[in-house]
Design a binder for these strands. Structure first.
Length: 475
DNA sequence: CACCCGGAAGAGAA
DNA sequence: GTTCTCTTCCGGGT
């Protein structure tokens, strides 16, 4: 296992390295005075739950479910539910998808689902019943059980932010990540397996020592992977954090969260809505972890220019696999995903340095890509268009004026540029004619040719740093 | 051997 | 059904 010894755990151990959680989720969950959460119809639902109703929906009895439904009818002005369709306990209720709920109560399924999701997450965050922290909660984890969660993918546990937690508890519950069993491995998605893990009385460090697993070979079969998720004996390298920030799963205290949040995601002003679902976002979250817990996996080499190094490729891939619930993820696969970012100028490889990449866009830009993609059909020369149209449009755009920044592809759609890449590579003649340098530059930005991209990359480096600075100033 | 690259096909979510 | 973002697999190069 290749481990760079930093000040944090000397060996990457996912048992004590909770993944960052979605900042947007917390914004949503824990309204900040200066950053009001997105309006939620659910509002202060939890506080208004009928007295006597356990806050953890999965612990509800049938009667509790009935009480809850009645309460929902009143609270959200929903049509009366057919209680015959809800003869189930809370656990079963939570297992219903939004669709299921919609079928049982047309017009109210979304609301019901959202409320349940919120309650489940709240319960998890409060440390009562761990939710799936690492894998996307939607579809992967038993909890929340629905594959149609909304908000979509609040994913992370909040353990990294609880500095207030007692040292004793921290020692007993080292910053751990509770990993749900691998649904992708077990296609049955048996909730029983999840229960066994997730109803544990405390947050057992059930995330595998993914780094160890990964480092022992990243091409296991799925069954191997699953086996790996039994926490192996702690290696001598897995010394406790010397960092004074104990990582636990206690309920967050808002004030602490606030303070940390500002540090953690100073660039997260725009709502990304990705929540670590996208690879670049995931990497940013790890890189920007305020307590630097992931530096054994990934670390900035030069934050100003966006250059980072994947310290433990196998371990990082494992983390990513956990996040995406693809437990057979390895560095080879993950790096393929990274390479897709080349062509859209999100990343580039740092030549000559292994596992070194550079963000070509700073976090704000990246997060704005979501918005850009909404606008791209009107404004972006590299907008997503049906592939059949790409060729024609490219010819027309060839003569467009270009500034490096604006024309750097921001479109995350691989499809948009793919035809050109294909043409250029598989059929060089087809990429012709390229009558001018200008055109070459143009095409290069699309096809991500490293040489031709150099100018943009250099620009992006400066651009990245400049934006970073300006964002800091805004703080 | 590990890393890196990119094509191809397809999955899964929105 | 379409689009997006990967995931998976692969052959080939360094």
């Amino acid at each position: 296992m290749k481990v760079v010894s930093l000040q944090l755990p000397s060996g990457p151990s996912m048992e004590r390295l909770p993944l960052p959680f979605s900042p947007t989720e917390l914004l949503w969950r824990y309204p900040l005075p200066w950053a009001p959460p997105p309006p939620s119809p659910l509002g202060d639902t939890k506080a208004q739950l009928p007295a006597g109703l356990p806050p953890e929906p999965r612990l509800w009895t049938r009667e509790d479910v009935a009480v809850f439904l009645k309460w929902c009818e009143r609270e959200f002005d929903l049509p009366n539910f057919d209680m015959d369709l809800f003869q189930m306990n809370g656990k079963a209720l939570c297992l219903l998808t939004k669709t299921d709920l919609g079928e049982r109560c047309p017009g109210a399924g979304d609301v019901l689902h959202n409320v349940l999701q919120m309650l489940v997450r709240d319960a998890a965050l409060l440390g009562r019943v761990p939710s799936s922290p690492v894998t996307p909660t939607a579809r992967a984890a038993p909890y929340p059980p629905s594959p149609h969660s909304h908000p979509p993918t609040p994913t992370w546990t909040v353990d990294g932010f609880h500095h207030f937690h007692s040292a004793a508890t921290a020692a007993a519950q080292p910053n751990s990540v509770t990993l749900s069993p691998a649904p992708s491995v077990d296609s049955s998605g048996s909730p029983q397996r999840g229960e066994a893990v997730n109803y544990a009385p405390q947050y057992a460090p059930s995330v595998p020592n993914a780094a160890q697993a990964a480092s022992s070979g990243s091409n296991h079969s799925d069954s191997d992977e699953e086996a790996q998720f039994v926490p192996p004996p702690r290696s001598p390298k897995d010394v406790p954090l010397t960092n004074p920030a104990p990582q636990t799963h206690q309920a967050p205290q808002h004030s602490h969260y606030r303070a940390q949040h500002r540090e953690f995601f100073p660039n997260d002003m725009p709502e990304s809505n990705t929540n670590g679902r996208l690879l670049w976002d995931f990497l940013q979250q790890l890189l920007n972890d305020p307590t630097q817990r992931y530096t054994n996996y990934i670390a900035w080499k030069n934050r100003e220019t966006g250059v980072f190094k994947i310290v433990d490729p196998a371990g990082l891939a494992k983390l990513w696999g956990i996040q995406k619930n693809h437990l057979s993820m390895n560095y080879d696969k993950m790096s393929r995903a990274l390479r897709y970012y080349y062509r859209v100028n999100i990343l580039r490889k740092v030549q000559g340095e292994r596992h070194c990449y550079q963000f070509l866009r700073n976090p704000t830009e990246l997060k704005n890509i979501k918005n850009i993609s909404l606008l791209r059909q009107q404004m972006s020369p590299t907008r997503v268009v049906p592939q059949s149209v790409v060729k024609t449009e490219m010819k027309e755009e060839r003569c467009e004026e270009e500034t490096v920044d604006e024309d750097m592809p921001t479109d995350l759609s691989m499809a948009a540029s793919e035809p050109w890449r294909k043409r250029a590579r598989s059929d060089p003649a087809a990429a012709q004619p390229l009558p001018s340098q200008h055109d070459k530059h143009r095409i290069s930005a699309l096809i991500g040719d490293n040489m031709m991209m150099k100018r943009e990359a250099e620009y992006a480096t400066e651009h990245y740093a400049l934006n970073l600075k300006s964002e800091k100033c805004e703080q």
